[in-house]
Amino acid sequence: MNILKQAKFFWTSIVLAIVFSVIMQFLITGGTLNQFYVNTLFFIGINIILATSLHLIIGITGQFSIGHAGFLAVGAYASAIMTMKLGLPFPVAILVGGLAAAVAGLIIGIPTLRLKGDYLAIATLGFGEIVRIVFLNIDYVGGASGMTVSHLTTWPWLVACVVLTVVVIANFTNSTHGRACISIRENEIAADAMGINTTFYKVTAFAIGAFFAGIAGALYAHNFYIIQPTNFGFLKSFDILIFVVLGGLGSMSGAVIAAILLTIISTYLSSYPEVRMVIYSLVLITMMLFRPQGLLGTREITSFFKAGKTAKGGVQHDDKKTVA
């Protein structure tokens, strides 16, 4: 009975998503939405992918990574090389971007995921910076002055990637493997004692997160005309981290909502250059002071419509220290 209900819910969501994207497609081609809004939507979509992919690493598996911009960079450069240097089609570039980032995730994850808490954070921060410096020194991709990329990201590709990311990560979270990851977040030693291969799951979650960040990188590179190492510094990693924490650690819908809200706020504020970052930082500080557990805590937005039930994605106590 319950299973039928779930299946129905799943397919309803998918249908809604398709209807929504088709309507948007008509609005875009019909010119009702001007380019600026379209671009903001693209930006939101990319940020959603980044937020959900980091959510898997930090929110679900509890591995404190602050080098996510490094994977974004790997994906962006790998895909740009595919289309600009090798002349391959865009879908191949997206896939290669994701795979390259996943490989980078494995290379980085295997040695560093032995570390815990702040030490892991520092190590990932370091790796993010190393990735940036490596690209800075490779003349093949333009070094410090960057690489120009054609505009190939289109609305259908974007929607497809966003839906794919959200579906895969949501399903992963609710699978056996996802539960294993959650158990690592809650207590790694206990999880180990229960026979869960913690290293395997940590690295897997890390690689999946990196894969989707790489896809976001491919979309990013082909949407903004140029990529440059300075676009992928640690401040970019912080931006992504902020989406996840502000939305509520362990809540995917929270991360998505935070990504949407913050992108809109940031875009809106760009017309007020003098006070833009001052307001942005104040929003950040106030939000954290008054709601340190994030917008949704560890709950999902759907749990608000179902009284009496709590989401499975996280613990039930908002104030419990679960991460780092």
Partner: peptide
């Protein structure tokens, strides 16, 4: 008494505030 990651985000916020202030 909040999570340390919340405090970290606040620290980032404070840092941005001082810079852009």
């Amino acid at each position: 008494n909040a999570t340390r990651i919340a405090a970290l985000i606040t620290a980032i916020g404070v840092s941005l505030f001082i810079e852009y202030g």
